[in-house]
Design a protein around this nucleic acid. Structure first.
Lengths: 148, 148
DNA sequence: AATGTATATTTGTATATACAATTATTGTAT
DNA sequence: ATACAATAATTGTATATACAAATATACATT
């Protein structure tokens, strides 16, 4: 992906401007690719993330605030993401007995089942996006990303 | 930015999964930073992009489709982005005389004026985001991004 | 000229997200 | 115990975006 080609400019961009622009162009490509891959399964990336977080709990329920901390989205959206997952039967929500302000979210068997399907979809998409990278290059990239 | 720390997991993620996740975490950080920087000026990143594209035309108007090609967003959104810029007095829209299906968008003096202000804001934000990078590292990053 | 097809943009509608305000519950200080 | 602040989640509302359908104009074929 060549920046100057995409944005159709002849003039040389300053290094920092070019880097940020480059980054956001690649980011958009990655997002679009994942959205397209998940679309046939009628689930959004954010909803998928919630399911993954819940699986990470290994049976234990997660408080809504915990899910929220591990996501980029805002609290109010987390509530509504969970609403949608409940409608699909992928998670359950009960109010916490210890502290009735909190709610506990658990992934259902149905939710686990779609996750195993989606895991494959995501892995394939990752590989598709990263075909041109060697492991060495991926490590270099990760190392550079740590600097942000 | 450490991936495992952000998503609070102990187990080691597969290299490819980690890279994509890392990328999207950094992408979110970049986006948030720019949104926050532009917010006081009451303009969105997308609206700002339209203005930059128009400036690149050097006085010549741009067709809506041209603007659209150079942006990530969809055509219908481009229409509405321009609507908002017109309301603010930053651009003009006239139907093209040669081909009355097309429209021509031009940046106004007022639009150019805010751009010069926003240029500084963007440059500062870029520098703020990239403080930890040497020029060599930025070139390495750009080189790796080309592989996407 | 009439008809069908392609192009360029706009509009309608559903969904997604951000932000502020609200509700409900718990903890704390007097 | 009462009042006040803090915490957790939800709801209302405005804005943003995606997608499909509609509109308007131009081009091509008979």
């Amino acid at each position: 992906m060549n920046v100057e080609e995409v944005i159709k400019t002849e003039k040389k961009l300053p290094l920092r401007t070019r880097t940020i622009l480059h980054f956001s162009l690649v980011g958009n490509k990655i997002n679009e690719t994942f959205m397209a891959a998940l679309k046939p399964h009628e689930i959004s990336e954010q909803q998928f993330n919630v399911l993954r977080i819940l699986r990470g709990q290994k049976g234990k329920p997660a408080h809504l605030s915990t899910i929220n901390e591990r996501m980029v989205t805002k609290m109010s959206n987390t509530t509504r993401l969970v609403d949608k997952l409940i409608l699909k039967g992928y998670v359950d929500r009960i109010t916490c007995a210890d502290n009735r302000r909190k709610v506990e979210i658990t992934i259902t068997d149905k939710g686990k089942a779609v996750l195993t399907v989606l895991d494959k979809v995501m892995e394939e998409t990752e590989n598709e996006l990263l075909t041109k990278f060697s492991d060495l290059e991926l490590n270099q990239l990760n190392h550079l990303l740590d600097k942000f």
